[in-house]
Design a protein around this nucleic acid. Structure first.
Lengths: 232, 232
DNA sequence: TTATTAATTGTCAAAACGACAATTAATAAT
DNA sequence: ATTATTAATTGTCGTTTTGACAATTAATAA
């Protein structure tokens, strides 16, 4: 077989920043690294890109293996390719961020990997450039969520406006006026009000909503301006 | 030296979609590929990522080598990593899009590479998945330009509102109302009106403007909503 | 029956938007 | 010198969106 002569070859990996929301705070899922170097240190979920898969395939495989979940929201972020980012040998890594319903995951708990949820603001130091990856992912999540209805991916199928409200505040690390938020989020036409109420959080109870799947997929690419005073 | 045992290694390349604007139409810069396979076919500017450089470094190096330009606007797009995208051996490529002032480039013409500008809507078939890369880059350019003031990168330091207007129409492939466009673009506060006029295009002449560099860098990350009826 | 708590709904002025056409500044032609 | 021509520039107005602000409602607990 012909090869491009003399060019160096590298390992290519994927690393996933997995975001979840417990109803109060934004969290990320970390695992204890299973190989040297830095074994047993906290790290992002990752793995090498196999011979017969694309990086996207690899990211989905890694997520499936470590969380049991399929079909999760997964978005390519950027490539991390500084020559010395991995001390063993040159490895380029494609960073992905994933949004999952934390409760779905809990049902799938897999202790094989010592995965653990951490508050985004209270996570341990990670290996290599993974801290930078998390910072970048957070920024990108904020950016994307300001324009596109993606945060729903972190909520159950049935959710309330107050839940959504808190999630938006968490992601953007800011306070959002309840009235304006409610007006804006309902005016997207993406929500369908259900008859049922969630009474776990208050006496009055909050109505459940679900996503209008049709409008959701139709608007997945639309700009929505979901944040007041939109600045990034 | 330790290595991660048994993992496959791949070539990693960069490919650059270079956009330019000739005052009328959006163009891309293509080169005739200099190596087998598909030698002499039109392709994007690209090259392999060297042992001591990051993909970003490589992209800048390739651009410098092929256009003579440094410090051009360059943005990482996404990675292209289907296992069979290169018929010779597995190569992953990081796609970049670049915005350059077409006139700066013309002053640097380097015939060594048989580079040539093509109308974005009238380009030859490209090798491998480069056609897809161009389509993706165009989409991303449109997206980014709708929110951030980046199209200035394709204009000379002194430019007129009508020039900018045509450029926006080209990028978005749509007609934009002159009055509303002018109002919106000036209300960003990014433009400084000069005393001089460009009389090449009309009897009346159009005033030159230049970028307010300070406000430009301050607003590089701001959302500006530069397109009417913002949809992507 | 009342107190309590959180969800929900309402108002209003300012700004932004989008659709629309008239005026102006220069040159060329008469 | 006057007029015609051409493209740049500026203006209006009704509608919609925004953002700042507080009162009301629905349930449970006391």
């Amino acid at each position: 077989m012909i090869e491009y002569s003399g060019q160096p070859h590298y390992l290519v990996a994927v690393d996933c920043i997995v975001f979840g929301f417990d109803g109060e705070h934004l969290k990320i899922l970390l695992v204890k690294r299973g190989l040297e170097p830095e074994i047993n240190k906290w790290s992002l979920m990752g793995g090498f890109v196999g011979a017969n898969e694309s990086p996207d395939d690899a990211a989905n495989r890694v997520l499936k293996k470590m969380t049991g979940l399929e079909g999760v929201y997964l978005e390519q972020m950027q490539i991390y390719g500084e020559p010395d980012r991995d001390p063993i040998e040159r490895t380029l890594s494609v960073g992905y961020f994933a949004l999952i319903d934390i409760h779905k995951y809990e049902a799938q708990l897999n202790d094989d990997y010592e995965a653990e949820w951490f508050l985004i603001n209270d996570k341990p130091k990670l290996i290599f450039d993974h801290n930078q990856m998390v910072a970048d992912a957070r920024k990108k999540l904020r950016y994307k969520a300001a324009l596109h209805p993606i945060l729903f991916e972190m909520l159950p199928k049935k959710f309330t406006i107050p839940q959504l409200h808190i999630l938006f505040e968490e992601v953007n690390d800011t306070k959002i006026d309840t009235r304006n938020f409610s007006r804006k989020i309902t005016s997207t036409g993406l929500l369908i009000k259900l008859a049922e109420k969630d009474k776990s959080g208050s006496k009055k109870g909050a109505f459940y909503f679900k996503l209008d799947k049709k409008k959701y997929s139709a608007n997945a690419q639309a700009f929505l301006n979901l944040m007041p005073n939109l600045k990034v």
